[in-house]
Design a binder for these strands. Structure first.
Lengths: 167, 167
DNA sequence: CAAGTATGATTTCCATGGAAACCATTGTCA
DNA sequence: TGACAATGGTTTCCATGGAAATCATACTTG
C-alpha cells in the first residue's frame, strides 16, 4: 500500500498532471468511421467487377430517378464539389453511360441523362449494392437493422444531410 | 387519361423491362457513409485549429496508450497500410510529437514513442474530439446514443474491426 | 557460410476529392 | 448598351491513402 502511493505520486510529478483522455471507442464518430470505411471498402471491391466506383454508382443511381439533372444538382445530391462531380461525369461519359447536352435556354448549364447502356447497367449495380448491404449487415437481426436505419436517419435529418428532392 | 396510358405504354416498351432498382437510402451502408463523412468532416475542420488531421489524432491517441509501438503495429491498429502510416509518422515527427528509434535487437523495426510535447498535445486534441462528438450526436438522447454504440460495436466485432490490443 | 527468403519500413505511382482559380455565359443596372 | 456581378462548369493544385516496387536487415537452410 505504501509503495503504491509512492508510484502514484511519482507518476503525477513526472507526467505533468496527466489530463483525462477519453478512449477512442467512446466516440461514436470514431466507431462510425471505422464501420463505414469497412462497408464502403467492401462495396468498392465488389463494384470492381463492373469497373465502377462507389461515387459513380451513387451518381448513376441519382440520375436514374431524375430523368434530367445538371452537374450542380448532382453535386448537391452527392454532397460533393462541382469539381469532383465534373471528373466523375467524365468517367461515366467515357463509358457511354451518360449523355451531356447543353441546355438550349442557357448555354452555361448541362442536361445530363442516362444512355440506354446506362439505364441497363444501373440494375446490375443495384444488385451488387443489395448483396453487399445484405451480407455486411447480416450479423444484425431485422429489428437491429431497422433501429440502425432510424438512428442514422435521425442524424441525417438533424444535420441536413438531405438528398435533394427531384424538384 | 388516354394520353397518360399512351405515355406509360411507350415508356414500358422503350425502357426495356425496367428492373427493380432499390433506393439508395434503403442501404444502411449508404446512410452510414453519409453520416460518417459528415461527422469526420466536422471533426477534421475542428482539428485544423491545432494543424492536425484525423489520422494523426488517432495515431497519437494510440501511441498515448501504448508506451511503445512499431509502425506496423500502428498500421494494424489504424487499419491502414504501412505506407500510409509511414507518411503520417513523418508529419507528426516533423512537429516533434513523436520520436522514432531503432530497436536495438532488430535494426529493421522502429520503436515509436510520444515526446513530452506529444504527451501534452493529446489531451488538447481529446478535448476537441469530445466536443465534436458531443455536438454531433446531441440530437440523439442518451438511450439512442448507447443503442447506436452497441450496434456499431456489434458490426465491428463480427467484421473483425478490432483495435489491436496493447499485447 | 552463402544464397535465398522473410520481414519491416519507405518510396513511387496512382486514384480520389476538396479548394480555389479560371472560363464561358447570362443577368443587372447605371 | 456596356461594364460588372452572378452563375455553371472545368481545370489546376494539393492532401490523402492504397498497391506495389524497393531497400535494408534478419533468418533459414543447403
Amino acid at each position: 500500500m505504501v509503495s503504491m502511493e509512492i508510484i502514484l505520486v511519482s507518476m503525477e510529478t513526472t507526467s505533468e498532471t496527466t489530463a483525462p483522455v477519453s478512449d477512442l471507442e467512446t466516440h461514436l464518430g470514431y466507431c462510425l468511421r471505422r464501420v463505414s470505411n469497412a462497408v464502403s471498402g467492401n462495396f468498392a471491391r465488389a463494384l470492381q467487377a463492373k469497373r465502377t466506383s462507389v461515387a459513380e454508382w451513387v451518381l448513376l443511381r441519382q440520375l436514374y430517378d431524375r430523368r434530367q439533372a445538371t452537374p450542380g444538382e448532382l453535386a448537391d445530391a452527392l454532397t460533393m464539389t462541382r469539381g469532383a462531380v465534373s471528373k466523375i461525369l467524365d468517367k461515366v461519359e467515357a463509358k457511354s453511360w451518360i449523355r451531356r447536352r447543353v441546355k438550349p435556354e442557357d448555354n452555361r448549364v448541362q442536361l445530363l441523362s442516362l444512355t440506354a447502356a446506362g439505364r441497363r447497367i444501373v440494375p446490375e449495380l443495384a444488385k451488387i449494392a443489395d448483396r453487399n448491404d445484405d451480407q455486411f449487415f447480416a450479423c444484425l437481426d431485422s429489428d437491429e437493422r431497422q433501429s440502425l436505419g432510424r438512428l442514422l436517419g435521425k442524424l441525417a435529418t438533424c444535420h441536413q444531410i438531405r438528398d435533394v428532392p427531384i424538384e
